[in-house]
């Protein structure tokens, strides 16, 4: 039984660390597309956290809304800005500088 508690604590610590790290990188990065992808990843990780906190209702909503719909909204905005930025946008398959 204590095995479960210890392993669970490790799991929770890793998820919490992952959340904080994702948030840190998301808010510090300079590339908008990277930030959006990190936001999606953050939403999915947060859904895992809700499960661990004991709130499966919230996990369902977070997976669908926080990651899915919000991510789509941001990607849409990115698309709009990429078209706006137009000529100095890099080729899609090209590596970032």
């Amino acid at each position: 039984m204590t095995d479960v508690v210890t392993t669970g604590l490790l799991l929770d610590g890793l998820i919490a660390l992952l959340l904080a790290g994702l948030a840190f990188r998301l808010l510090r990065t300079r590339d908008l597309f990277e930030a959006i992808m990190l936001f999606v990843a953050y939403g999915l990780t947060l859904a895992l956290a809700w499960i661990r906190v004991g709130a499966p209702d919230i996990a369902l909503a977070e997976a669908a809304l926080g990651a899915g719909v919000t991510g789509a909204l941001f990607l849409n905005a990115w698309h709009r800005l990429a078209v706006r930025a137009g000529s100095d946008d890099r080729l899609p398959m090209e590596a970032d500088p």
């Binding site: 590339d31 908008l32 990429a82 930025a85 000529s87 100095d88 946008d89 890099r90 500088p97």
Partner: peptide, 30 residues
């Protein structure tokens, strides 16, 4: 970044292909 002074003085619309400084719309140089 390299684009401190390069944004066009008109303040509107990135005007030309400038590979070294992508538009601040997509890359925030801070």
């Amino acid at each position: 970044g390299p684009g401190v002074s390069s944004p066009s003085p008109s303040g509107d619309a990135p005007t030309g292909p400038d590979a070294s400084s992508p538009s601040p719309l997509l890359r925030d140089h801070g």
